[in-house]
Simulated assay, not measured.
Amino acid sequence: MSIKKIALSILSLSLLSSGAVQAQSDKVIIMVGGMEKIIYLPAKLAEQLGYYKAEGLNVELQNEPAGVDAETQLIAGQVQGVVGFYDHTIDMQAQGQNMQSVVQFSRAPGEVILVSTKNAAGVKGMRDLKGQTIGVTGLGSSTSFLSQYLMVKNKIPLGGFSLLAVGAGNTFIAAMEQNQIQAGMTTEPTISRLLKTGEARILVDMRTELATKIALGGTYPAACLYMQTEYINAHKDVVQKFANVYVKTLRYIATHTGAQIAAQMPKDYTVGDVDAYVKAMNDGKGMFTKDGVMPADGPQTVLNVLAGFKPSLKGKNIDLSKTYTTTFVKAVK
């Protein structure tokens, strides 16, 4: 082979290599704290509707049952964004990590505290769960945050009950059936499945904005897309595309029925009961925002809830304005 051909071969390999690196860097990985949960519906629905591709985004959705683990991956730089609860941005600021919600999906947690019917006798409120084991998706997850707050609010100290990480869906249901947990916080469609079989009843409902205000004292912005502030500032064009995608998806949710939305989702998301899934979808649609904008009164409520039980927030000056941004969603056409 001539020197010229060798040089061309080396150049070609170099270009191919740089192209592969570029293609890899163009991929944006979004970790979802439970892909099948209705509270995180926009992440998968956007993919099903082809909205990511329409914006020219190369997106990989990764499923992680507990939000706290997704948060860890974000800090480590393994993913570029998380579809999880806004409260993590406040919790992380107290630990020196800067993150922001860039699209706010919901104005309510979409979660409930369920009590096993085997242990429901005499349980009229959170105070009656003293000494019991409460199931949460993960320790340090938003379900654990809210469970702890509701117990402390009802005069039960943190040592007066136990939390057990049981995930959601089948693992949550199994834990309740086997009496590993006597109560637990979960989301749809797990809620509907347990109510339908009569294995549990609702103790605290936070699936609507009104019910949430009663339980938590105000609007509680929950599901969102959050990213590290450094990434947001360095990739504003990419972040804007995500804002475009999710606002468009939120508008779709607001203008379509539960049945129409369910028809777009993977069949296994309905867990073999389409009617229950559609009902849960229709009942829960009201928690979603229509524009992705953070409700003005929401961040303070979330801070109040977290400060109610987390020692790490005591004495810390949290700048709520740095935990979210509305710049991108307000620029959506």
Rank of each mutant, 00 (worst) to 15 (best):
I3C: 02
I3K: 09
K4M: 07
K4D: 13
L8D: 06
I10E: 07
S12M: 06
S14I: 10
G19N: 05
Q22V: 11
S25V: 08
D26A: 15
K27Q: 11
K37I: 00
Y52P: 10
L57N: 04
N58S: 15
N58Y: 06
V59C: 05
P65I: 12
G67D: 07
D69F: 05
L74A: 06
A76N: 10
A76L: 12
G81I: 07
H88N: 13
H88S: 13
A94Q: 07
V102R: 02
V103L: 05
R107G: 12
R107N: 14
G110N: 04
K118P: 02
G138L: 05
M151I: 10
I156V: 15
F161V: 00
S162L: 05
L163N: 08
V166R: 07
G169P: 06
N170F: 04
F172Q: 02
Q180I: 02
Q182D: 00
G184L: 04
S192I: 07
S192A: 15
E199S: 08
A200E: 05
R201P: 01
I202G: 03
L203D: 06
M206G: 10
R207W: 10
R207G: 12
R207N: 15
L210V: 11
A215W: 02
A215V: 07
L216R: 09
G218S: 01
Y220G: 05
P221R: 10
A222G: 10
Q228C: 00
T229L: 04
T229H: 01
I232G: 03
N233G: 07
D237E: 13
D237Y: 05
V238W: 01
K241P: 01
V247P: 06
T249V: 09
H256I: 06
H256C: 01
G258S: 01
A263H: 01
K267R: 14
D268V: 13
G272S: 04
D275L: 11
Y277T: 08
V278I: 15
A280D: 10
A280P: 01
D283A: 12
K285S: 03
G286M: 06
T289S: 11
V302W: 07
K310G: 05
L313M: 13
K316R: 15
D319I: 06
L320T: 00
K322R: 14
T325K: 07
